[in-house]
Computed example of a mutant assay.
Amino acid sequence: MSRRRRGLSSEERTLWATVARTAVPLRADEAIAPEPALSEPVTEEMLAALPAPDKAVAPAAQKPKTPPLAAIERRTLNRVARGIQGIDGRIDLHGLTQHDAHHRLRAFLVGAQARGAKLVLVITGKGRDGDVTHAAHFGEMERGVLRRRVPQWLAEPGIRDIVIGFEEAHRSHGGGGALYVRIRRRREG
């Protein structure tokens, strides 16, 4: 037996028309997608039969994250400043464009890591006083572009895997125009 559908009464049609006029459609990002209907209700037995999530598998499936940049220990900085601990390599980026400096820095750090270096000196220079005309035109002084950019580059993912941390160098090694950079030991495999 089929059931005959009842139509709306005139009062129901009037009510529906009033509601439809006052309704405001949802934006696409606010719309809620309907959930798919289940073929049968979920029972406690079904939930109990599901395998327990393996917590050991989830983190192993993810790529291990590189730890955050760490400060160089004060003791190490003092030993380097006094000349007790040596610097395993140095690069001078004076006078290079940002593009050239970035590529040379990366190549230097990769080479230093391959050689087993632990601490290197990166000389950026302090920068010279910006041109007043240039500063007025661009709204800021362009003093020490490499001095500002090298720490940003050291934190980038491509270089970040090589670097443990960095600190401003002692005055005897260039002070604010140079950085001590600790190199991560190369991973085998």
Rank of each mutant, 00 (worst) to 15 (best):
residue 1 M to N: 03
residue 5 R to N: 08
residue 11 E to D: 03
residue 12 E to C: 00
residue 13 R to C: 04
residue 14 T to Y: 03
residue 14 T to V: 07
residue 16 W to D: 04
residue 17 A to E: 08
residue 22 T to I: 10
residue 23 A to D: 01
residue 24 V to E: 14
residue 26 L to G: 00
residue 26 L to D: 01
residue 27 R to Q: 07
residue 27 R to H: 10
residue 29 D to P: 06
residue 32 I to F: 06
residue 35 E to H: 07
residue 37 A to F: 09
residue 41 P to A: 12
residue 41 P to V: 03
residue 42 V to A: 08
residue 43 T to M: 06
residue 45 E to R: 07
residue 47 L to C: 11
residue 49 A to S: 15
residue 52 A to T: 04
residue 52 A to R: 14
residue 53 P to N: 06
residue 54 D to Y: 12
residue 54 D to M: 07
residue 54 D to C: 15
residue 57 V to F: 07
residue 57 V to A: 15
residue 57 V to K: 14
residue 60 A to V: 15
residue 62 Q to R: 13
residue 66 T to N: 02
residue 67 P to I: 14
residue 69 L to A: 09
residue 70 A to Y: 02
residue 72 I to D: 02
residue 73 E to K: 03
residue 74 R to V: 12
residue 75 R to M: 07
residue 75 R to T: 14
residue 77 L to F: 04
residue 78 N to G: 05
residue 79 R to A: 15
residue 81 A to F: 11
residue 83 G to K: 01
residue 84 I to M: 09
residue 86 G to D: 04
residue 86 G to V: 00
residue 86 G to T: 04
residue 88 D to F: 06
residue 88 D to C: 09
residue 88 D to V: 08
residue 89 G to P: 05
residue 89 G to E: 03
residue 89 G to H: 01
residue 90 R to Y: 06
residue 92 D to P: 04
residue 92 D to Q: 13
residue 94 H to G: 08
residue 94 H to T: 13
residue 95 G to S: 13
residue 97 T to M: 06
residue 97 T to W: 00
residue 98 Q to V: 11
residue 99 H to Y: 08
residue 103 H to N: 07
residue 104 R to W: 05
residue 105 L to H: 02
residue 106 R to L: 15
residue 106 R to W: 11
residue 110 V to N: 10
residue 110 V to T: 08
residue 110 V to Y: 08
residue 111 G to P: 00
residue 115 R to G: 08
residue 117 A to Y: 02
residue 122 V to Y: 07
residue 123 I to M: 13
residue 124 T to V: 06
residue 127 G to Y: 09
residue 129 D to C: 00
residue 130 G to L: 02
residue 132 V to Y: 06
residue 136 A to M: 13
residue 140 E to I: 03
residue 140 E to R: 04
residue 143 R to I: 05
residue 144 G to W: 15
residue 144 G to T: 12
residue 144 G to D: 09
residue 148 R to F: 05
residue 148 R to N: 12
residue 149 R to Q: 11
residue 149 R to N: 07
residue 150 V to K: 01
residue 151 P to A: 10
residue 151 P to N: 02
residue 152 Q to N: 05
residue 153 W to A: 03
residue 153 W to V: 04
residue 155 A to L: 05
residue 155 A to C: 02
residue 156 E to Y: 13
residue 156 E to P: 00
residue 158 G to Q: 09
residue 161 D to C: 13
residue 162 I to N: 01
residue 162 I to K: 01
residue 162 I to T: 11
residue 165 G to A: 12
residue 165 G to Q: 09
residue 170 H to N: 12
residue 170 H to Y: 07
residue 172 S to V: 05
residue 173 H to Q: 08
residue 173 H to V: 03
residue 173 H to K: 13
residue 177 G to L: 12
residue 177 G to D: 06
residue 177 G to E: 13
residue 178 A to D: 13
residue 179 L to W: 15
residue 180 Y to R: 08
residue 180 Y to S: 05
residue 180 Y to D: 02
residue 185 R to G: 04
residue 185 R to Y: 00
residue 185 R to M: 03
residue 186 R to V: 10
residue 186 R to M: 11
residue 186 R to I: 14
residue 188 E to K: 09
residue 188 E to C: 02
